[in-house]
Design a protein around this nucleic acid. Sequence first.
DNA 1: GTCAATTTACTCGGATAGAGTGTGTCCGAGTGGCGAAGG
DNA 2: CCTTCGCCACTCGGACACACTCTATCCGAGTAAATTGAC
Lengths: 160, 160
Amino acid sequence: MRMGERVEWALHCCFNLGFVGPDVAVTAARLAAFHGLPAAYLNKQLQAMARAGIVESSQGPGGGFRLARSPQQITLMDVVTAIEGPDPAFRCTEIRERGPAGMWGTSQRACTIDAAMRQADLAWRRSLAGQTVADLMATFQNTYPAMPDRIKDWFTTAHA
Amino acid sequence: MRMGERVEWALHCCFNLGFVGPDVAVTAARLAAFHGLPAAYLNKQLQAMARAGIVESSQGPGGGFRLARSPQQITLMDVVTAIEGPDPAFRCTEIRERGPAGMWGTSQRACTIDAAMRQADLAWRRSLAGQTVADLMATFQNTYPAMPDRIKDWFTTAHA
DNA sequence: GTCAATTTACTCGGATAGAGTGTGTCCGAGTGGCGAAGG
DNA sequence: CCTTCGCCACTCGGACACACTCTATCCGAGTAAATTGAC
């Protein structure tokens, strides 16, 4: 099982957009340059977050992306769902139905194995839903007090 | 993010091998027939579990696979790790180092985002480690009391 | 009848092709700002 | 000098190739059981 790098990118973008604040829009190219990523592909992930209502997009000169709501109202679960989709990692394909046991009437109840895996998935989702972008920003600011302003400056001032 | 079907297959195999008991070995072909799966590919997963010490393999006539230890001592985490590998789903690629922020000395501490994702991964792993194959067997037997014997019979008797 | 070497058939085990998803890239649609022209 | 119209550059947005992992398969190595022959 492997989670795509896209999620990492999206989280870092939300993180930095949180420090920049909702007043200015940051282009995908600028965010890509800050992280050393391919701009066009990162743009795709930002679009996905825009569809999910996490960020707002504006076109034209001076356009770009900004957080659609407060960092306190954006959980890691929101971001992961926006990028990776809502489906759980484990998907029961009901192989118990394909063999001879399929005739034995064991499909009245939910698959025992599926239930167990769903429970683990739920624990994972709860942990993600319990952490907001604001929490990450606070932890980071606590470790590096001067960094938030530095980040905001980099994004709000012009660059070659 | 998507978990392979292999995990589902492996779990069902452990589940059924638990009911069969450690006295008789079940071939990969028999397990595949019971679930309607490709035998050679399922064999590959059983091999992976053998390498992990979850099942024991024996060659020759009368050979096959059996649980290497009690179902109570096999957790879902063991099976998932054996099939999917020990790496966590989320892997931090340290993109913070690739941009201009890489020069700002933020790599002294662990990546904030990585830490948050690791925490969620840990919750997932704890849930998996807290459930054993024996637990699943007990739940299933509680729902369908007659099934375990029926399963054992199917695997221990000859078939066309 | 007993033992042992041999054969045999059956099993796992790793090396080898094909499909699906994630990764990366491109060009077109839309939009806000800027400048020139007219009143 | 102010207003208005048109142009333009910049942005997002979706459609198009490439790579990698998962899926599936094959044939060879190894082994335990059955067979056969001698003692």
